[in-house]
């Protein structure tokens, strides 16, 4: 079972708050009933009123609960959809914030990223590649092309100085990569995100999920180590914060695996020597299709069942308030 939109569950919190007006409503109604109905039938009527109120609010709550479950996009099964794509378009989205200069991965994170890109482009000669770099903003450096020479040049010139945009915004990087796929291409699409995960702003998981919804394959490469490393300025001095402490940048593994999960993609470690091979394996498995020729598996969200349940509760709600429970009420 997968939940495509787990953030929908936050809606349960305001739903619980609905109990407060419900309770006060019941209290007020009970008091009013005492004034209107008269003592001679109050015991009967207040019992019925309690039952009616319970049914009313519980059906309302159940309606909202099931609607929220429908919203969450829960899916149990995968369905096969027709897939006539041909070839593969890969966009590399590379983080070029300063932290990518840390050398906990040799020679440094950015350099290693370049090596990885080169080995992937070399390992898959018939593909089309593009390069997006991002910091606070994303920028298409190489639009999707078969031209390997320019790709090589661009990879060799990867550096935080490529353009200026303060901060690190993974979401903008991913979104920029999404727009770098030109229309009308017959190929499957893949985004390979290389980052240390130290994002300062943006909701990368939502952006990643959008990729998964559009059927774009997603691979996240984590650059760096958990221990982290210091960053050096061009003159060799250590980058330090306002209090003079040396800044240590670490790999944010949780964030990156979370992004991979949101996009139903995979996560690999940049420093692992097996990574290029694994990525190429993934590429060839994407190209080979998953089992049936011309078909591809896709999550099937079963919102309809929940929605029907929700509407049934609403009908019960309507019906219960229409029924005469006693000759008095």
């Amino acid at each position: 079972m997968t939940v495509v939109y787990p953030e929908s569950f936050w809606l349960f919190i305001p739903l619980v708050l609905l109990i407060i007006p419900a309770y006060f409503n019941y209290r007020k109604g009970h008091r009013l009933l005492g004034k209107l109905a008269g003592q001679w039938r109050f015991d009967r009527i207040s019992q019925i009123y309690l039952v009616r109120t319970l049914i009313y609010w519980s059906t309302v709550l159940l309606f909202f609960i099931f609607s929220i479950l429908a919203l969450a996009g829960i899916s149990w099964t995968k369905e096969a959809v027709r897939d006539e794509s041909d070839g593969l378009d890969i966009i590399f989205a590379v983080d070029i914030s300063r932290s990518m200069l840390a050398s906990d991965v040799s020679p440094d994170r950015l350099g290693r990223a370049g090596e990885l890109i080169s080995s992937i482009t070399a390992g898959y000669p018939s593909g089309r590649f593009g390069l997006v770099v991002f910091k606070g903003e994303g920028e298409v450096i190489v639009p999707l092309t078969e031209d390997r020479i320019i790709m090589e040049t661009a990879v060799n010139s990867l550096s935080p100085a490529m353009f200026t945009a303060p901060g690190t915004n993974l979401a903008k990087g991913i979104n920029r990569a999404l727009t770098a796929f030109p229309e009308g291409s017959p190929g499957k699409k893949m985004i390979i995100l290389i980052s240390d995960g130290e994002a300062l702003s943006g909701n990368a998981r939502t952006a990643a999920r959008e990729c998964s919804i559009q059927g774009i394959e997603f691979i996240v490469i984590g650059a760096g180590t958990a221990e982290g490393a210091m960053i050096y300025n061009a003159d060799g001095s250590v980058v330090s914060d306002s209090e003079g402490q040396a800044v240590v940048t670490k790999l944010d593994l949780a964030e990156l695996t979370g992004i991979a999960e949101s996009a139903s993609g995979r996560y690999y470690d940049l420093s692992d020597v097996k990574t290029p091979g694994l990525v190429l394996d993934d590429i060839s498995s994407v190209l080979g299709g998953s089992g049936i020729e011309g078909m591809r598996l896709q999550n099937r969200t079963s919102y309809r069942g929940f929605l029907i349940a929700a509407m049934v509760f609403l009908v019960i709600n309507l019906a219960a308030s229409r029924i005469r429970w006693s000759r008095w009420y």
């Binding site: 004034k35 209107l36 008269g38 003592q39 001679w40």
Partner: peptide, 11 residues
């Protein structure tokens, strides 16, 4: 068959 008190009008 209505009253706000102890007994209704019929009683």
């Amino acid at each position: 068959f209505y009253s706000s008190g102890q007994i209704n009008k019929r009683d």
